[in-house]
Nucleic acid binder design. Structure first.
Lengths: 197, 197
DNA sequence: CATGATGTCTAGCATTGCTATGATGTCGCT
DNA sequence: AGCGACATCATAGCAATGCTAGACATCATG
């Protein structure tokens, strides 16, 4: 490959990333419904067809943003877990990190977990970063716990529900901390008889 | 008001309901993204502008469908709770009813809890049926529990997460029963020391 | 310098939500 | 009964959307 071709490929890769970043910023600023191919094209200072030479369509751009998010989320959860000296509190730290991620970048979170997608979850073709993020939850439970995966699924589901209901204004965003504390307490402890019912 | 005017108003109310039902059926059959004002108009055998004489726009139709759903959900949860002889198991029954509702009518559920909406939640203007549905969760906990509302919020969030992640193919739909059992067990019991972490 | 390929843009299509305008019938009143 | 006013509805159109075909320019190469 000639040096010129290499430079072109480099520039192309840069532009590829530029599109992803622009879409993400625009979505974060005005919401996904405001991300149109025209606005996006203007933002990257190219015409619309250029977008289609990089991605198969708007959905593919969204998918690329989501994939980027999976990597960042996995890293963040991992950091939260490893930064916790006492393992019993790791779950709490990871859950808090998850909710912070969702609250700080709601549009990114939507692309990852709310908007329709063809990304495979819990499947052979699952993107490694996504699997890695999920595993951070799994690893909060003792390795001799044969139902770790189940625990992780329920924990994740609960957090997702809190994140998404809060973001869409369906539960007041204030109580998140109390809800988180309660959730972790219940998930972590072994239940002993119904006293709250 | 003349008898003729009354008849007209009756017919108008019928048509109003017809539009809501048609939208709901179409969404359930092909998904909300397939519900266009044109298809909807054809389905009710009127032209598009008629839709706008009944609703302020597509969003308003969606809102009407959601409101209908709130009523049905509240009734269903109530029935599940009252049909449970032993109060400690009421929570489990209500939660199962909730997940069944979401799984059986995914499009309706989306209109209620996923798609952007201006319906007020946990607010003075909250539609009574919605508040009633939420109260079914609250009433699963003992009335001397000062944190019932918090418990209900977390329970609902967790169920919502399970429902929505399952519907969008992000967790396998099979394990729902196990997840539900685990969730209810943990929420119901008073935690005694970390054994699972 | 000419040529061909590569890259980019202009212009356009079909579909969307929504609406202005005009046709059609219906109602109330003399 | 007939006429004018009004309500009702459809045709036709607008702007915005995702996407694409074709024209145009640019640039490496013979």
């Amino acid at each position: 490959m000639s040096a010129i071709a290499k430079r072109r490929e480099r520039e192309r890769a840069q532009r590829h990333q530029l599109i992803i970043t622009a879409a993400r910023e625009l979505a974060e600023a005005e919401g996904w419904e405001a991300v149109t191919t025209r606005k996006l094209a203007e933002r990257v200072e190219y015409s619309q067809p250029v977008l289609y030479s990089h991605f198969n369509g708007k959905d593919a751009i969204l998918r690329a943003v989501a994939l980027e998010g999976f990597g960042e989320l996995a890293a963040r959860l991992r950091r939260a877990r490893l930064a916790t000296p006492e393992p019993p509190q790791a779950l709490h730290a990871v859950c808090r990190a998850y909710l912070e991620f969702a609250a700080e970048q709601p549009a990114l979170y939507q692309a990852m977990f709310v908007l329709p997608t063809d990304v495979k979850f819990a499947h052979a073709e699952t993107p490694p970063p996504l699997r890695a993020a999920f595993d951070e939850f799994v690893n909060c439970f003792r390795s001799d716990n044969s139902r770790r995966e189940l625990f992780a699924e329920v924990t994740w589901s609960a957090l997702h529900g809190m994140a998404v209901l809060s973001d869409s204004g369906r539960i007041p965003p204030n109580g998140q901390t109390e809800r988180l504390d309660f959730l972790v307490t219940q998930i972590a402890g072994t239940p002993s008889g119904p006293a709250t019912l």
